[in-house]
Design a protein around this nucleic acid. Structure first.
Lengths: 341, 341
DNA sequence: TTGAAAGCGCTAACAT
DNA sequence: ATGTTAGCGCTTTCAA
């Protein structure tokens, strides 16, 4: 491989000139720049990443810790990941992928100076990795919102507001008995940030609007969805509004409601909380609060890069939820609304 | 951050001794080793990845190019990715994630000496990236099998054999009219390796066994599955055996067959080609040929590392398919087998 | 068994 | 506008 010295020699300039042509950190005369660029092309020169990192303390790499396990929704995860990778490239960065179960991964790549910043998904309310991130030299961005951000940047959909918006939409249609079919039990039990906040928004808004509400965990499978729907129908036979926050179970929830004799949306309205493409890709397009996974990933990178560049303080950005009415919500069945005042 | 010199000073030895303690490349007396290890722990020392890469031309990083787009199955992709990341760690390597649409990513990370080896998924028969990989200094491993491996290592499920096994299973149960519901049109049209080979195995074995067969592409959505099933039923009303190679469409294919009055497996037998967990996670557990994605990812890493270490030549490993009979295949309906001799 | 020192290829003062 | 050069933190000869 050609080195920067080879390029300098070929162009008849000093190595620093080549370096500055590359970095643009000082003005270079047009003719010089052209000769250098020519030599770079002729030699197929590419700076050695390690040498550059050593001299500049910049790696042009971002770490992304993603939950690659079965119980979280793979589809949504993937959208976050592509969002991160794609926008990292816009900042001339590549992405090092760490998995959740590689407990010491964050410290390894940070302390070994392998990355300029870290992004972590699937944050829990009281996440043990948060103090670890706080102790690192590199800035970190959380996708999700822990109880104690401790000076870390955070970004996510405002799931609490999403829960509120979904409930309000149902209330405005006259529904009085509403249920949340949410994340798997395991996700709830570890107090995963998004699940906690969703639950909170749903419940608080139902109380605020005087609705009767119930919450049901739901495993991410066909049978899980069937069980969840049956549990809700048993506990709240008069339910007319259902919020579903579980992409995998989504189709089965709708199908099961129908199998149990509840027409959607005539008898029961369904509001999903899921990415846009999932909502419109169903047999019946769903009224849904969008989870803008790609955007969240992009914003996470932007926040990370901002902190790498300047001395910005940490910030938290919660994206406002957007509900789009499609085919699965309708006014509550006549009379129903008055049965449970 | 502490450097190797700090450690050496603290331990009262030379820097090279610390280096050798770390690498194990020369014998160190027990007392010396202990003092060095103590200092390393006390100082929380971690070697600087860039410096190490510069001096040793080893990055301890692997590149993985994965197709993070919508039309390939996200679930399976994810299993490959976790397989790769997990076993990379076993070789003390981290994984740099490149996306399919980052066309020049492979050259960028290879020529910039960011990685020790590259692994590429979703290979097409005549993939333009193959010659690129051949030109790199670092070894590359393909997950999939191009027409012309050109000296690259390849690993994958033997999809041709998988197609044959599936057909043979149906034939042994007496089925005479069989259909393949496969990948989306786009995947087939770019001659994605696995889709091509599957189709070939299915067709050749059907011919060899004297069966009547048809092949149908299938978009990865509910409606795509419905359309595919309807197309097959229209073209081959007497079909009694269906091989499905499309994880996303799988549940909808079975559901649609039933909606069209075909009981599964009494009227129509279904053989899936999908990962184990997908097959057993369906409402009805499916007779299936397993796609051992995790294993393939692991083998890819092993092959890559072997070539990084030694001067092994490139090799191609096709994993033998394993079919497990579950609830969705049964003997062909009586008499049917004789209608189309 | 250990140490000294020459790079690895680049960046960024410091000069001019 | 450009050149000179001292590191960056490690590995690995070469010596002892």
């Amino acid at each position: 491989m050609a080195t920067i010295d080879d390029v300098a020699r070929a162009a008849g300039v000093s190595t620093s000139t080549v370096s500055y042509v590359l970095s643009g950190k000082r003005p270079i005369s047009a003719p010089t720049r052209q000769r250098v660029e020519r030599s770079i092309r002729d030699l197929g020169y590419r700076p050695h990443a390690g040498a550059r990192a050593l001299a500049s303390s910049r790696t042009q790499v971002l770490a992304l810790m993603a939950p690659l396990r079965a119980d979280v929704n793979v589809n949504v995860i993937m959208q976050f990941v592509t969002g991160v990778v794609t926008s990292a490239r816009a900042f001339e960065h590549d992405v090092l992928l760490l998995t959740q179960d590689d407990a010491t991964g964050l410290e390894r790549v940070a302390d070994g100076s392998m990355v300029d910043a870290l992004i972590m998904m699937d944050v829990e309310a009281d996440d043990p990795r948060v103090p670890v991130l706080v102790g690192l030299r590199q800035p970190a961005v959380l996708i999700g919102l822990p109880q104690e951000p401790a000076g870390l940047s955070c970004v996510d959909l405002d799931f609490e507001a999403a829960g509120r918006v979904a409930v309000r939409h149902l209330a405005e249609l006259g529904h009085r008995d509403v249920a949340l079919i949410g994340s798997p039990r395991a996700v709830l039990e570890r107090h995963t940030s998004y699940a906690d906040r969703m639950l909170r928004g749903f419940t608080l808004e139902a109380v605020a609007l005087g609705l009767t509400s119930t919450v049901q965990s739901c495993e991410s499978s066909h049978s899980g969805a069937v069980e969840a729907v049956d549990a809700v129908l048993a506990r709240m036979p008069g339910v007319t509004g259902v919020v579903v926050h579980n992409e995998v179970a989504l189709p089965a929830v709708v199908a099961t409601l129908r199998e149990r004799g509840r027409r959607v949306p005539e008898d029961v309205s369904v509001v999903a909380v899921c990415p846009h493409d999932v909502a419109v890709g169903q047999p019946t397009p769903l009224t849904a609060v969008d989870i803008p996974a790609h955007t969240i990933g992009r914003v996470a990178v932007e926040m990370a890069m901002a902190r790498v560049e300047g001395e910005q303080p940490a910030e938290t950005r919660l994206l406002a939820p957007v509900l789009t009415a499609r085919g699965t919500t309708a006014p509550a069945p006549a009379g129903q609304g008055q049965l449970n005042p």
